[in-house]
Design a protein around this nucleic acid. Sequence first.
DNA 1: GCTATCCGATAGTGGCACTATCCAGATGTG
DNA 2: CACATCTGGATAGTGCCACTATCGGATAGC
Lengths: 213, 213
Amino acid sequence: MRMAELSTRSGTPVATIKYYQRETLLAGGERSGPNQALYAESHLERIRLIRGLTEVGGLSVAAVRRVLEAIDSERSLPETFEIAQHSVSATIDESTVSAEALARVDALTAGWHVSAANPGRLAAARVVDTFAEVGQIDVRGWFDRYAAAALLAAEADIDELDARVDRAAKGETVVVGTVLGDKLFSGLRRAAQEHIAALRYGQPPEAAPDHTP
Amino acid sequence: MRMAELSTRSGTPVATIKYYQRETLLAGGERSGPNQALYAESHLERIRLIRGLTEVGGLSVAAVRRVLEAIDSERSLPETFEIAQHSVSATIDESTVSAEALARVDALTAGWHVSAANPGRLAAARVVDTFAEVGQIDVRGWFDRYAAAALLAAEADIDELDARVDRAAKGETVVVGTVLGDKLFSGLRRAAQEHIAALRYGQPPEAAPDHTP
DNA sequence: GCTATCCGATAGTGGCACTATCCAGATGTG
DNA sequence: CACATCTGGATAGTGCCACTATCGGATAGC
């Protein structure tokens, strides 16, 4: 297909597609002349992936470039995981989190095999610090229960990964799962919050859910 | 205290504090002259809250303004929840998600009391759509297991909320918990991913966790 | 008195993700 | 074949956002 079709089928402006090419997120088409090129179905899929990662996943163009490179290269799964994890979360310098918060997180994840450089470990410690800084205290094991929930999700992640066969599919699942998993969870948590709140102090729980406005 | 102390103690540049005042995130100090003002401890706490929400929570200044207004006003808890939820997630038009994805999410949350307008419901549906668009399929109940994890987290959220006594504290807990909860979970999930991956195909599980690089 | 600091207003900066324009050459349509 | 339309590549511009810098006139504190 040519540029115009790629644009309409992906729902992305031509100028934006050209921008992605300049940013090396998207390869050029197969050249059929000095100023002509043809694009394959794979280009369309790649654009959809890029837009999913940016619009829904909230990744920056630079982060998308990193994870795409990880998918395309013949990296091992743990390496791909590491790249995906680093790309979704802002890099946190260990010096910016308190030793107490780090110790708290390490206690939460006691028994887990987590390296010191795991970006999630630092991100969680950062949250623990912030929680304290704004005067909140963990009175009912909020942290611990989140750790339990996270373990559940991570098991689901790896099970899903095991269902993929070839390496390219695994790489893409790692990236997509890491990026979209956060969003899926936060969405479902908001729904669950409304549910639990309604159960405890809101409308009577026997009221049927209303999905038609 | 005066502006200089407010700046040093909060670790925020004077120009930025003035910017927050212009943006009505922070009230002016108590005036002691035509061009002098004194700031209280509450101003310092407010700045810490603002920076926690922006730097760690990733909220925009506009979103911070909305949630602070919700905390300060005498709104009911469900209303505060709604504002906090809308502020953390980008508004999604129902027309941009497919009916199938919406039905899938409603099936995941069957039995929950969730209103049609819940932003999390739409956000989750958006993720389900994107997952399909990039060619991924949910083979091992990934969605369902995330719903279970979300329910666990939401229960922890509401329990934590119940531990607060006065309304102002509850409001702040709603906001902080909603905003930081997402980040805490995503951090812990990354740690858990490394753990489970190591357990399944990585280093031997008997290797002790290494927290000293 | 003198220097450092203050408030408030206004303008400027840098990063980011596009978006628009231009050009010479290619294509397709009647 | 005429001619409007489209193409790839290069370059410049836009809009938004979260600050950041500067200025002028006034005050604080020694």
